[in-house]
């Protein structure tokens, strides 16, 4: 396959960037998108140019490190697939492919196609934990978990934190990420102790960085793990409930 690539190049976070056009020849249709970029970079290095910077790690769709907006769609045209698992057979010979980094105020471009995504870590820090006893591991199945709850929690926990939901959202909102991270704990018995405090803290932290949800559903379409926007509704419900929960003085005489 011979392809024309329009790739966003930006030397560093402070500089302006623009699209550079490159031609790559002899691409195998069995290559992944990132392997195709590797070929381009070999080509650039040989001709003495700076290679295109992009993030990648596991290249098997489970780490959430890679992420490119390909022809206007985060992670490209294949549904439920991270960029590293996208194969060149999804493109046609002679096609012009446009590649852009995630765009969000909270995800500033560091260089070329690399963005910083640490605000997602801030959301996790705010409440992505449970209180667990120390000591010996509890017996298996000691805590009964309904099968449906376990399944739904597992679906939410499939989130790899790539940030495609933010990239896809017309509002730059991180609701799908936050909702998934909240839901996989809130659905399980082990997550109940912090349920409302977690929801409130994680949503409040999310809102410091990201936009708000207008229920377009673009995030769900872009998500390489097909996480459902049903979890966003669950998060909204728990957030609203958290505002009504006040057990601080339950059963106590009101003093002061």
């Amino acid at each position: 396959m011979d392809l024309t690539l329009r790739i966003w190049r930006q030397p560093d976070a402070e500089s302006d960037g623009d699209f550079h056009v490159y031609a790559v020849k002899g691409i195998s249709s069995d290559m992944s998108f990132l392997e195709m970029l590797d070929v381009l970079n070999e080509q650039l290095i040989e001709s003495g140019e700076e290679p295109v910077e992009f993030d990648s790690d596991c290249r098997e769709g489970i780490c959430g490190t890679c992420g490119l907006v390909i022809n206007g769609v985060p992670h490209g045209p294949e549904r439920a697939t991270a960029t590293c698992q996208l194969h060149m057979r999804k493109f046609s010979d002679g096609e012009t492919i446009t590649v852009e980094p995630w765009r969000a105020t909270a995800f500033p471009v560091q260089r070329d196609l690399v963005v910083e995504r640490s605000p997602l870590d801030r959301i996790i820090e705010a409440g992505g934990y449970i209180t667990a006893p120390t000591g010996a591991a509890p017996d298996a199945n000691e805590i009964p978990v309904p099968k449906e709850a376990a399944d739904a929690a597992m679906d939410a926990a499939a989130c790899i934190g790539c940030g495609a939901c933010v990239a896809a959202c017309p509002n730059g909102a991180a609701q799908l990420f936050t909702a998934a991270k909240i839901a996989h704990l809130n659905l399980l018995p082990q997550g109940q102790a912090e349920r409302y405090r977690r929801t409130e803290a994680m949503v409040d932290t999310m809102e410091e960085f990201f936009g708000s949800c207008t229920n377009h559903g673009e995030c769900e379409e872009a998500c390489p793990k097909e996480i459902s926007i049903d979890f966003i509704a669950m998060m909204n419900r728990d957030y609203i409930r958290s505002k009504f929960k006040n057990r601080k003085r339950l059963g106590q005489k009101k003093v002061g």
Binding site: R6, W8, D18, F19, V69, N71, G72, V73, T98, E100, R103, A104, T105, A106, V109, P170, N171, G172, A173, E207, F209, F210, G211, S212, T214, N215, H216, G217, E218, E220, E221, A222
Partner: peptide, 24 residues
């Protein structure tokens, strides 16, 4: 809030999949 959340817009054309005319 939403405009602030993406101050630098996409430079290439976005291809919306789920968003419909009404929601946009």
């Amino acid at each position: 809030t939403n405009r602030d959340a993406r101050k630098v817009p996409y430079k290439s054309e976005r291809d919306y999949i789920a968003a419909n005319f009404a929601s946009r």
